[in-house]
């Protein structure tokens, strides 16, 4: 019974994911491209950096990076607090 249920779930997920892959857009042709064109044509003048990805990460979408830095800081602080002993100074 459990094997039949597992097989059914496996087949269902496989067919669903295959259908989702079949309906993907082709590589390199997104639907909404207005922001991409704006970034590519204006980032060199506004952020004065050649790497558009870095200017998006640190300038246009800076709050995202702030949240990521907070998550990393919290993770490191949690690990150091859980594993700290007296004689080891991290």
């Amino acid at each position: 019974m459990r094997r039949a249920l597992g097989l059914f779930a496996f087949l269902g997920f496989t067919l669903f994911l295959l259908g989702a892959v079949m309906s993907l857009r082709p590589f390199g042709e997104p639907i909404h491209a207005e922001m991409d064109h704006y970034f590519i044509s204006h980032a060199q003048a506004e952020a004065s950096a050649n790497n558009v990805v870095t200017s998006v990460v640190f300038d246009y979408r800076g709050f995202d990076t702030l949240g990521e830095a907070t998550v990393l800081f919290t993770a490191v602080a949690g690990v150091l607090m859980a594993l700290r002993r007296k004689e080891v100074k991290g």
Partner: peptide, 9 residues
């Protein structure tokens, strides 16, 4: 070049 991007990096 880069402004604050280099410092933030």
């Amino acid at each position: 070049t880069g402004g604050t991007l280099a410092y933030m990096n």
